[in-house]
Design a binder for these strands. Sequence first.
RNA 1: GGGAGAUUAGCUCAGUUGGUUAGAGCACCUGUCUUACAAACAGGGGGUCGCAGGUUCGAGUCCUGCAUCGCCCA
Length: 886
Amino acid sequence: MARNAVDISPAGRGKYDPASIESRWYPYWEKNDLFRTNHDSEKEPHVIVMPPPNVTGRLHMGHALQDTVQDALTRLRRMQGFEALWVPGMDHAGIATQNVVEKTLKKEEGKNRHDYGREAFVDKVWEWKEEYGGIILEQKRRLGDSCDWSKERFTMDDGFSRAVQEVFVRLYNEGLVYRGEYLINWCPVDRTAISDEEVENVERKGHLWYLRYPLTDGSGFIEIATTRPETMLGDTAIAVNPEDERYTHLVGKTVRVPLTDRQIPIIADEYVKSDFGAGALKVTPAHDKNDFEIGRKHDLEILNIMNLDATLNENAGVYAGLDRFDAREKIVADLEAQGFLVRIEEYASTVPISHRSKAIIEPLISRQWFVKMKPLAEPALEAVRDGRITFYPKRWENEYFRWLENIRDWTISRQLWWGHRIPVWYWLDADGEIDESRGFRVSIEQPEEGMVQDEDVLDTWFSSWLWPFATLGWPEKTPDLAKFYPGTVLVSGYDILFFWIARMIMAGLHFMGDIPYKDIFITGMIKDKQGRWMSKSLGNGIDPLEMTEQYGADAVRFSLTILCAQGQDIKLDPTKFEMGRNFANKIWNAFNVFGQFMEEGKDYRRKRSFAELDFAEQWMLTRLGQTILDVEEDLARYRLNEGLGKIYTLFWGDYCDWYLELIKPQSGEPMSEERIALAVELFETMLQLLHPFMPFITEELWTHVRPREEGDICMTSAWPTANKADMDAGVAGHFATVQELISGIRNVRAQYAVSPSQDISAVLQLEPGLVAAVEGHREYFAKLARVTDLEVRTGGSRPAASSSVVVGRNQVFVPLKGMIDLDVERERLQKEIDEKTRYHKSIEGKLSNEQFVSRAPEAVVQTERDKLVEVMAEIKRLQASLDELA
RNA sequence: GGGAGAUUAGCUCAGUUGGUUAGAGCACCUGUCUUACAAACAGGGGGUCGCAGGUUCGAGUCCUGCAUCGCCCA
C-alpha cells in the first residue's frame, strides 16, 4: 500500500470547514496503518475492547459518547507511548437481527422464516449481514474512531464460534451447564425462552378477581383472589397460611376447580400472606414462579394449560385454542354465570414484559439449557472486592455486588434460528424422532453418524461475554492474547452492567484465570432534552451523523466529552454542539493570528531561554505547564470532562484572550520571528493536548504550524510533559495582577461609557515588586485597555477628576477629564468598600474565633491572616479615594 | 418494599480527600465591524447550593430525617 496515498496538503486558510478536513484525515490514518497494533511491541499495552454494536445497528448518541471516550483514551495512551489497542467488532445480536430480517422478508416478499426453512433463512440473514451489517462501523469512522480494524471481529465468525462451542463443552464437563425442565420466561411474540435479565417488570392497572372454589364435601366454599383467573384451569392446589385460624380446619380437604371436574387439595404453606386478598391462594405451578416453588415443595402436579403462542391447550377443555386474554374474559363470564365469581377489585399488579418485544411474558414449564452461576459469580465478586477491578464511578460496585450476590442461573438456550447452535447431539428413533431415552452427547463435532444437533441456539450474550479474550484468538494461545490480555479499561453504559460487564468478568476469570480489565468506566446514558430515553417510537432521537454533518465530528466529540461528567446521564439538546463548533472555529481562527505572518516552509523554533522571554510569554508558558500537570491527573482518573475543560480555558481564556491579544502587532506591522516561534510552540503543544478529543482539526493544523517530515503527525507525536524550567509561579502571579488592573480599567471605561476607540491615560500606583514587571510593558495597557498615556509609580496622590480601581496593594487611576461624575464614582467606590468590608468581617470573624485559630491547620490560619491584611489594605485605599472625592 | 442517584444562576450542568468572596456554557442587559474569529470581543446583572436538624474551628461537600423527580431491583 502506498504510504500517504491521500492528499494532506494543508487546507487553505479560509473559513473553518470541518467536512473537508475530516474527509482527508481519516483515510490518511487508516491507509498508513496508524491504528494497527503489534503484539511484538516492547511498549506497554493499553487495551480497550469496543462494546460490539448489533450488526443491524445504526450509530446513536450513546455510541457516539462511548466511542468518543474510548477513542480519547486510546489516542491519549498512544501518544503517551503505549501500544494502544482498541478492538472493534460487531455482535450478531440473535433475536434483534432475526427480527429485522424477518420483518424485511415480510415486507418485501410477504414471506416468513418458515416459508424459507431454517437453512435458507439463516443464509438469508448472512446475506443481509454482508450487505447491511457493519454500516455502523463505517459510521464510527466518521467520528474518528482509531480502532485497529485489522482486529475486527464478529461474534459469529469462525473463530468466535469455535470459542463459544468450546466454552459450552467445558462448562458442561465441569457441571456448570445443565439441561432441565423449569419454569422459564417465555416470550409468546418471539417464541423463545429468555433470561431473567431480559424481563422487565412494569406496573399495570388490572383487576383482582375473587373466586370461590366449592369444597368437595359440600360443606361450602373457600374464597381466593387472583390477578390471572384464566390460569385456574391449571390449578393443582389451594394454599393457606398454616397460622391462619380461619382456614386450619380446611387443610387436607379438597375442592373442585370451578368449570372443571378436577379435585385439588387444600394445603398449608407459610408463603401465603393471610392479609392479601381472601387469605387463600390458588396454586398454579405451571404458570407462576412462586406457585412453582410451592408445587415443588408439596410435590404437586404440574398442569400446563398453554401453548407456545400463548393460546390455551387441550388441558383447558372447551377453552382450548383461545388466546390467554380472550380466555380470561370468557372464563370470568362463565364463572360469574355459574356463581363462582364473588367480586372484582381494581388492582395494580406487576406484569413481566419482554425487554425486547415488550410482550407480556408467560412463565412456562420448558426444557432448556442453563448455566449454574454461583460458582462463576464468587470469583467475580472477589475481583472487585479486593480491588483488582475498579469501577469509575465507584458506586456502581454496589449494584454489581447486589446482582452477583443474588444471582440466579442463566437460561442460555433460545428457540431461534440465528445464533450459535448448541453443541449437543441426539440419537433418532426408528421414526426419525429424537430418542430421548438414549440421552444426548455434548460435542463440538457430530459424535456419531446419524446423530442430530440440538435445534436451539445460544443467548447472544453467551458469545459476547467472551469478547475480551475470544477477540484475541482464544482458545488458541495467540501472541495477541499473550500481549493484550488482560485489558486496561472497559467503557460502557450501566444498562448492560449485568447482561455483559459482569458476565465478561466471570468468563475472564474462569477461562483465562485473570480479570478482563482493570478499570470499568461507566458512562451516563444519553437522554433527550426532557430527560427521556431516546427511542425510535418517541422520535426524540438525535442522529450523531446529522450532528457531525452540521457541526463537525470534532465539535460533536468535544461537546459530548465536556458534558460527560462522572456517571451522570446527559440531557442532550442539539444546540449543545454549538459549544464544540464554536471552540473548533476559535482554534482554527487563532492560528491565523500568527499564521498570517509565517513564511511558507519555514520552521519557527524558539531561540530564547525562559528568562529571555517576554513577561506575557513567560506567564503563558507557565500556565501551559500547570495545565499539563492538572490534565494528566484528571485523565488518569477518567475525569475527561474536567481535563478537557481545563484545556479549553487555557486555549480560549488564556491563550486567545490574553496572550495572542498581547503579541499581536499593530496593524500594518510585522510579527517578529521570535514571537511567532513561541506562539507556534504553545499552539502546537495545545494541539497535542486537544488531539485525543478533537483529532481532525488538530491533525490538520499540525501540518500548518510547521513544515513536517513525512509521517510527522499529531496523532503519533509524543504527549507533552510539563517543563519545570519553563514555569515560574512568581511571574504568573504578577501577570494575574496585571490582568486585574487591565480588567479594572476596562470596567471603568464601560462604567463611564468611554468609546472603545477612544484613547485614555492612566496612572498605575504599584507595589515595588511589580514595577519592574510592568515598567517595560506599557503596551499591554495600550493594547488591551487603550491606555496610550501610562504613568507607573510607587506612590503619590490621586490625579484630579479620576476614577480609581484597587487591586490588592496596587491601584490604578483613570483620569477622565470632564467625564467623571462624582456621584457615580462615589457609588462605585462605596459599593466596592461595602463588598470588601463584608469580606473583611467574615475573615475577622474566623480569626477572632479562638477555636479556629487553635484547631485549624496552621497553613489555613495563615492564609486567612494574609487575606485579612490584604483586604484591609484594599479598604484603606478605597476609603482614601472616596475621601478625596468628598 | 429495598438500593443507588438527582435537587446549585432564567435554562443545561461542573464543583476532587470539608478550607480563597461557589464556577462554565447558553440566555439576558450595555457597548463594539478594536484587521484571527459577530460561530467574535469588552463590560454587567443574576445563586440564603431542595427543606429541617446534626457533626466540625469551618459544610454546596460528611451524617440523620423529610419533600420532589426519574432510575435499578423485588
